[in-house]
Design a protein around this nucleic acid. Structure first.
Lengths: 217, 217
DNA sequence: CCATGTGAATGCGTTCACAGCC
DNA sequence: GGCTGTGAACGCATTCACATGG
């Protein structure tokens, strides 16, 4: 079995979720195109990498398709994760309830500020940062949502990875150097990227009165 | 002036920020490789798309390089943005202080829950959701950070875009259908993607393709 | 020598076009 | 007929190798 192309993995990850709230039993590649925006032949090509009999005359069997994707991508395993850094962003994710639904289990929150641990109320157990090695090992935590300030991100990531964490979502604007898998999510870069995309169309003007009348969607 | 390759834009966006906290005057492509993780020839190729004399014997001139990137990508314009949906995630970003530093101005927060508007304290002016068209037009808001529940994301995005918003960061797990530029950030998909990458220790089917080969810490 | 810059080669994902099957 | 599945063609970004400049 060969490695999947990187972009294919990315699309299949999304497709798997998309199939979650898909009430029908069958779905065609054309319908997936409509819902997700990828060309139908791209969808078919992606799916063709998966093993098994997934189609039946008029489309793919939703259950079987989702199962095949999850199986192939290793998404059937329930992974334990933690949130590190319980500022506004970290505690937002600490209280996010969408993890369990999709096979993740949030089992710990960490912060170096003891006061903060006492103030925060959460269903999830909270620990001081110095307990990261112990707790990560004890619960076999594999994934971490890293919400600490940029200055500490590299050091904290080192501790996490040493303790056994294999994947990180990094919200700080630093390029982590680590053997773990990393996904960077920095909102300012996202804004900058959007800025680049929308270009310098009609700027300068402070839109005094009339406002440009936009055509409907 | 030709369009830049998509991946180049993405790297230059990050490079521009990386140069922000770069105290030196000169930087070589090899040093950028060390800090950002891209091969030095990739860096040079990316930079070669930019106009102007950016190098001088022993590396690039940091100021000039950053200026050239920002100019080319349209990052010199200060864009106004807003946060829509002031739940935990939305209010976390509402209080994030990193926007101004990098040329963005957060000028409004919106939520449909009037109570919430009264409870939240923020330096940023808050408005009820029904005022989105008015406020977006009045302040010429171009970018929106969309933190509303999935069920409302499409409808709210329609209103924003109709009012003049040109780019959206979407935190909800839905594929928005819109003419605006969109960046999707859904944390569960990020976790799933990491899951796929780290596999099950026994399972090397996904064979991390080169990608992030970092040298040891 | 150092490091940049760039045409040319390579490799990889996308797109195409059509064969196969329900 | 409609839809999937896939080898083959294509196009684009990456990578290479070497010419150029301080």
């Amino acid at each position: 079995m060969h490695a999947l192309p990187e972009p294919t993995v990315e699309r299949l990850v999304q497709l798997s979720r998309l199939l979650l709230d898909c009430p029908e039993n069958q779905i065609t590649s054309a319908e997936i195109e409509r819902r997700a925006g990828w060309a139908s032949h791209t969808v078919r090509k992606d799916i063709s990498y998966l093993p098994g009999e997934l189609s039946s005359g008029l489309g793919y069997k939703v259950q079987a398709l989702k199962a095949a994707i999850d199986e192939r991508l290793g998404l059937t395993i329930q992974r334990r994760c933690c949130v590190v850094g319980l500022g506004r962003l970290g505690s937002a994710y600490l209280n996010f309830s969408g993890f369990e639904l999709e096979g993740f289990k949030l089992v710990a929150g960490f912060d170096s500020n003891i006061n903060r641990l006492e103030i925060l109320q959460s269903r999830i157990p909270l620990y001081p940062a110095f307990k990261i090695p112990e707790v990560v090992q004890r619960f076999a935590i594999e994934l971490a949502i890293l919400c600490v300030p940029a200055a500490q991100a590299q050091a904290v990531s080192d501790i996490l990875v040493k303790a056994g964490v294999k994947g990180l979502i990094n919200f700080a604007p630093v390029a982590l150097s680590t053997k773990a898998a990393v996904r960077n999510v920095y909102i300012v870069d996202e804004l900058r990227y959007l800025s680049a995309r929308i270009g310098n169309d009609a700027d300068e003007t402070l839109a005094l009165n009339g406002e440009q009348t936009k055509e409907p969607l």
